[in-house]
């Protein structure tokens, strides 16, 4: 037995446990999913009739699916802007404090630790009980809105709660990047008469650009799969007004009409979109890094 062969055998032995669980629960479902997406499988009957691309053709004219896709895209874009701006502002404000930096950081990040199911229900209480109380008794009439029942405000509510959950995480990433900016650069700029906005714009921002790219694509990838917040806050309602793609797929498969084959086809479309984003992300990041 050659040395290389021996090496490979020991490799396989050590990799086996990880590979087996990985194969059964991730790789196999991925590839069998491609097959199921071309069947009329409904979860009840044993035989899964092969119907080619019929599911995908149906998706094309599935208004509810595209509505959920449109909603998700709108949600992702707004979150991308709102969450990153708040996180960056917080990071800059907190990082430059001499006192209480640690406590601010810890507390702002706390909602990120709690499941968005719990967070969503807590906010549900705020939106359905507390805000009405404030409007009626404390004169804050602008809060007197149907936060969960009106699609427009429900969207706003979802953005508020999602930002509440994610901003802390992004803030920590930005703070880590800010710590890498040499203080003497800022000091000498200020001696040369630069305003703090100028020194942020010209020195700090270019130096933390890498973290911005990371945060943007991290938000993109994770927000596209949004489920928990919407599930606990509006349940996708009113009607289907706040239904995200993940909720749409979940409903198709696990509540009511168990159309597994069709739901799998939808999830393949979601996968392709996420994959496309990732490919763009990698190529953009590569180009950016070459520029540096």
């Amino acid at each position: 037995m050659t040395k290389k062969r021996r090496e490979n055998i020991s490799l396989l032995l050590f990799v086996a446990p990880a590979f087996i669980v990985y194969f059964i629960f991730k790789l196999y479902p991925t590839f069998s999913g491609i097959y199921y997406s071309m069947t009329a499988w409904n979860g009840l009957s044993k035989n899964k009739q092969f119907i080619g691309l019929a599911n995908f053709v149906e998706i094309f004219s599935d208004a509810n699916f595209w509505k959920s896709m449109l909603f998700t895209s709108k949600y992702v874009i707004v979150m991308l802007v709102v969450a990153n701006i708040i996180a960056l502002c917080l990071a800059v404000a907190i990082e430059s404090r001499s006192k209480a930096r640690g406590i601010f950081r810890t507390l702002f990040c706390m909602p990120n630790m709690i499941s968005m199911i719990i967070g969503g229900y807590m906010w549900n209480f705020i939106f359905t009980k507390v805000l009405y109380y404030l409007a009626d008794h404390w004169g804050m009439t602008f809060l007197d809105k149907s936060w969960i029942g009106d699609p427009k405000y429900a969207f706003l509510a979802i953005i508020i709660v999602s930002s509440w959950g994610i901003v802390g995480y992004l803030m920590i990433i930005y703070m880590a990047a800010l710590q890498g900016v040499p203080i003497h650069l800022i000091e000498s700029a200020s001696l040369d008469g630069a305003t703090s906005w100028q020194s942020f714009r010209k020195i700090t921002f270019p130096m933390i650009r890498h973290s911005l790219t990371i945060c943007i694509f991290w938000t993109l990838n994770s927000m596209f799969q949004v489920f928990d917040v919407i599930y606990s806050l509006t349940g996708g309602g009113p009607g289907r007004a706040t239904q995200s793609v993940a909720i749409n797929i979940y409903e198709e498969a696990f509540t009511g009409n168990i159309r597994y084959g069709y739901a799998t086809a939808k999830s393949m479309v979601l996968f392709l979109i996420v994959l496309m984003i990732t490919v763009i992300q990698i190529s953009v990041m590569k180009r950016k890094e070459q520029e540096l």
Binding site: I24, S267, L270, F271
Partner: peptide
């Protein structure tokens, strides 16, 4: 790269 929601149904089957 594979999002959970896109394999949850075949996974459920497994």
């Amino acid at each position: 790269l594979i999002p959970f929601s896109s394999i949850m149904i075949p996974l459920y089957k497994v």
